[in-house]
Amino acid sequence: MTAPLFELRGVAKYFRGKTTLAERILALAGRRQPPATLRAVDGVDLTVAKGEVLGLVGESGCGKSTLARIATGILAPTAGEVFYQGRAVAGLRGRDRLDYLLKVQMIFQDPYASLDPRMRVSRIVGEALAVHKLLPRREIDGAVDRALREVGLDLAYRDRYPHQFSGGQRQRIGIARALAVKPDFLVCDEPVSALDVSIQAQVINLFMDVRARHGLTYLFVSHDLGLVRHISDRVAIMYLGRIVEIGPAASVFADPAHPYSAALIKAIPSAARRKAGFEPLQGELPSPLAPPPGCPFHPRCDHAMPACREIRPELAEIAPGRSAACHLHTAPKVA
């Protein structure tokens, strides 16, 4: 296997709540309470090969969006390292860091919040080219036109403002903005979940066309398992800040190894199923402020064993190219 384009090693992101006045006074009095720590991402190892589409799935609060923001350099990890083309991102300075930030582009979920309402489309798409002096000023117009044509937007729209567009067209503008700087790696955070069903298919097709044309690599973050199965080569499933299963999309969906993956896949509504007697997964995502001991999934798991309450299973290879973090697959060592 060739060296990965992108790699995360032991990446974690913790958020601390603000301390209240009472807590500060207690701290002064020497009765310090440890501040509550939210472990949004808690030790993730991940590689993305060049040209690959890696789908990242999980429910709200599992840390998938935080992970996407770390990948694009918007957030710095609390611990662990991010590598791009084999180089640690944290050590990049100047021109090298700018290169990384441009080569890794993000597509956001909300096509309303992610475009500046006071900028014309041509400026939104051409801004990075102008600011970073990637092209001589007289060539920017041509590059903007190429990007707009690429995403299927009429060039007559280049002087309009974002509010004059529908959600699907705005998402196309966001994609044109990302493509304008000639990226290698697109991090897409729920890129179609705000769009109507008939528009989702258009935008997903656009993502696949663009990928084929430019040989792009994607990290595709979504809660929609049906879409992830469709677009991804490999899929990673997150639960409470950790990856619980990762492997080729076809085999994970056909034969999920982790009970949580199995429950998620079963919960996908399907137009082919009629009046299915639902067998819902019980319980809810625990608070990441107070994750359960042992396996974080054990309170909701049908297969929970005594070991699951005490020992947290690590992500381990269960078959070539497939890993899962579950005691069902790795006999737990008795302490």
């Binding site: 529908s166 699907g168 067209q169 109507d196 069903v197 008939s198 528009i199 989702q200 298919a201 258009q202 997903i204 097709n205 696949m208 049906g226 879409l227 199965r229 469709h230 677009i231 999309a249 076809a250 399907s270 137009a271 082919a272």
Partner: peptide, 23 residues
Amino acid sequence: GLLNSSAAMVEPGARLHQIDGVA
């Protein structure tokens, strides 16, 4: 068109059947 635009209607990786245009 709505039913066919679902990802479940085609092989993984194939083009989705989109409804062109907007409402």
